[in-house]
Design a protein around this nucleic acid. Structure first.
Lengths: 235, 235
DNA sequence: TAGATTGTTAATCGATTAACAATC
DNA sequence: TAGATTGTTAATCGATTAACAATC
């Protein structure tokens, strides 16, 4: 996109592929734990829950790390994907908002195992400061700038109520954080160059509810159709 | 897809649109709280964080609920979207696995406000039974079938460790649950007709890490290009 | 009527998938 | 060599977007 010569960073990996790479990484970890040293695209795809054509296409954006007629070396492919995602590095992270969800996040083992290191837990309530969660001291939100500078934090997690989320994001951005994972149910406005990803538990449930409702509707129609004459109602 | 005549349920709403409807619903709630009774697609799109063409296209799958030259009635549109998603109904939900995350989910207020009612908290550890979380008693996992039957539960939430997730899912499906929200980091195998959505905190962070790494790489290239002068104040 | 804004069209873009040539 | 499996091509499908006619 930039006018810069496209040597080095030419390999533009599609977003949909980027989102699946961590899934492949997890599937590979599972294979390793099962003592499997080599796998075919078919096997890895099954473990990851995608079809094999998609898997091969995705991997082709990274390079050619398989062997035709043989498959992929699990350890080698694991390393290549981890490197591509960037989880071979250490990523210092701060979590802001130590309510129920903040607690759960601080205790979440899946972070540490992937290079994410929680360097600080921050809460706006001064009464919380001094508490310890998952072996990490809770500190006042005002120390954000200092902590980000000290630990070169690039990623922040927001687990505050919706009302506080935007101002927390503003402070994060001002302090130098450029990637935010937002659990608060609010749309964040951030400058270009800052990435925000949003996890919204209620939205996921609503998507399920929509499909659930549809299943029920289809069953109702089927029952009606099965009736002797069925006044065949179009809406 | 079925051979059934396509009257009633003809309005196939694209998945991408379904995933955004809850976002619009939340934005509309925000407008209502701000005392706004009417909005244009431009305003609602801004509140939801999408562009207005996409919003209008999405809404067009539901019907024509706006007025040309005027915009949308906030209350009316809210109702229509809520009805389409299905959150005007009551959705009984069970949560299995009452660790840190299960606690957070049980306490999450966003569920109740959208028609989701947590009817039971289940944990495999018998020692947990009798505990109370968010005013709901924790019960033994073995009571699952009974509870699903008693409350006509269609949606289950899995917040167990990865190792337990598949067997919990199997039991859920056997007991009649047909939609599962899975927080455990594992790929679930379920029969056709059962919907699974997955929320994986570590995967979200890894996607951020990938982009973060890329930003750093671009800055490094820029700094190199600029080398002779200015060791480069990139933001 | 003149101005505003929706709902829809059509073009574009990106993602998925099946099929298969390349090659171990 | 024969069998297996990758990496890539090309067709298809679905999602996004700009533009604008319809219409309040």
């Amino acid at each position: 996109m930039s006018s810069r010569s496209s040597g080095e960073n030419a390999r533009e990996i599609p977003e949909a592929t980027v989102a699946r790479l961590p899934v492949y990484l997890r599937a590979l970890t599972g294979l390793t734990e099962g003592g499997i040293a080599t796998c075919s695209s078919e096997e890895l795809a099954a473990a990851a829950g995608v079809n094999s054509a998609k898997l091969r296409k995705d991997l082709s954006y990274l390079g050619s790390y398989g062997t035709r007629g043989v498959g992929y070396d699990v350890e080698y492919l694991t390393y290549q994907i981890a490197r591509e995602i960037g989880v071979t590095q250490d990523w210092p992270v701060v979590i802001v908002g130590i309510g129920n969800l903040g607690h759960a996040l601080a205790n979440y083992s899946g972070f540490r195992s992937r290079g994410f290191r929680v360097v600080a837990l921050l809460d706006a309530d001064p009464a919380r400061a001094g508490e310890e969660v998952a072996g990490i001291a809770v500190r006042p939100f005002d120390e954000l700038e200092q902590i980000v500078a000290d630990h070169a934090v690039a990623i922040g997690v927001i687990a505050t109520p919706a009302a506080a989320a935007q101002s927390v994001a503003d402070r994060m951005v001002a302090s130098g954080i450029s990637s935010i994972l937002n659990f608060a149910p609010s749309v964040l406005a951030v400058p270009a160059g800052v990435d925000v990803r949003k996890v919204d538990l209620s939205i996921e449930l609503q998507i399920l509810a929509y499909h659930e409702q549809r299943k029920a509707a289809v069953e109702a129609v089927a029952a009606t159709d099965a009736a002797p004459l069925a006044p065949g109602g179009v809406s």
